[in-house]
Structure formats: C-alpha cells, structure tokens
Amino acid sequence: MFTTGRRGPSTARLWRSGRGDGNNKTVTPTGAKRSGGASSSWLLVLLALLFSFPALAVEPSEVLADPVLEARARTIGQALRCVVCQNQSIDDSAAEVAHDMRRAVRDRLLAGDSNDQVFAFMVARYGDYVLLKPPFKTGTLVLWLGAPLLLLIAGGALLMAARRRQRANLAAPLPLSDEERRRLDALLKR
C-alpha cells in the first residue's frame, strides 16, 4: 500500500536512535619521540596528519578466522550501504545496525553463500538502497545511461558543427564579378 517517508529531512535524523551513528574514527600515531626543535615537532604533526586514514569500523571480535572468507566479507562490506548513515559502507560505520549487517554477512559466508547470495540476502531485507552501486534496471536507466548519452549528443553536435565548417571552407569560391576582374587585371598589369 504505502511506506513511510512523509517525515521531513530535518527531523529524519533526530528521532533515529542508532546508538553511535557512524562517525569515522581517525587514528593518529601518538607518542612521537622528543627530538629536535619546534620545527621538527611541527613536521611530525604534519606527517601524522598526512598519514592518518579513517579506520575501519570492523571490530576485532567480528573478524573471521579464515582470512579468505574475511577478505570476501570486506569486499562485500565495502559495497553495502549502512542504512542509517546515508553514504557510508557498513565497514566504515560504527552504527549498531552496521555491526549487525557485518555479522550477518559473515554468518552467510560461513553458511557457504556466494557473494551474490549475500547481496541478495541484504536486498531482500533492505531493498536496493543497501547497495552502494545501484543495479542496472528500468528505474535506474537514466542514472546509468544519462551521462554517456549526454556525452554522445554533445560529441555528435560538435562533430556536426566541425564538419559544416569544413564543408564551408572547401566549397568552390564564387566566380569574380566583372568589376573584381577589372581590378585584378589592373593590379596584375595585364
């Protein structure tokens, strides 16, 4: 019949009790050795900032013993969208539901599912919204083909304009009028 979605975007985040909706944790190396003057410690800070990356939210307790399965879980986890944090993958999110989803992915893998089966499992529960890469179907045709189509149209228009200009340049010049011929003869002193 119908679903939700009548609540405005401003309130959408307020009522959601996700317990720790995903902020990236940033890791910066600490405890640098004291050496040199102020300038070198500034350099260290800069270096530390340069090499700090958002840490994965995957918790040690979630990691599978089998490194092959764990690697597959990471591949899948990075393609699945955390449903309460808009544009974070479940591997990047510290939200409660993302934790559940990571665990479910690993449970499915341990049960012998293929990657596609795990994606299907999630889509059956959360819909296409859960896929960070939208599937190719009628509803997403404009999304997938819009940009290439525009490129083709623009390229075609440019090509046509260029060809028209070329044709104009190549066209045989008009014959000289009598007046022009007289002036030309005079110049050439014939």
């Binding site: 019949m1 119908f2 679903t3 939700t4 979605g5 009548r6 609540r7 405005g8 975007p9 959408a12 985040r13 449903v83 808009q86 889509v123 059956a124 529960r125 959360y126 819909g127 919204y129």
Partner: peptide, 18 residues
C-alpha cells in the same frame, strides 16, 4: 515537496511477514 534522500523505503510492504 519534502523529498527525503535518506528515506530507505521498505521492501517488506506487500510481502509475507518475515
């Protein structure tokens, strides 16, 4: 129009309850 890009929607509606 109150478009909410964060709306997840629900795939469950119209299907048997889990």
């Amino acid at each position: 129009a109150g478009r909410d890009p964060a709306a997840i929607g629900s795939v469950l509606v119209g299907r048997p309850a889990p």
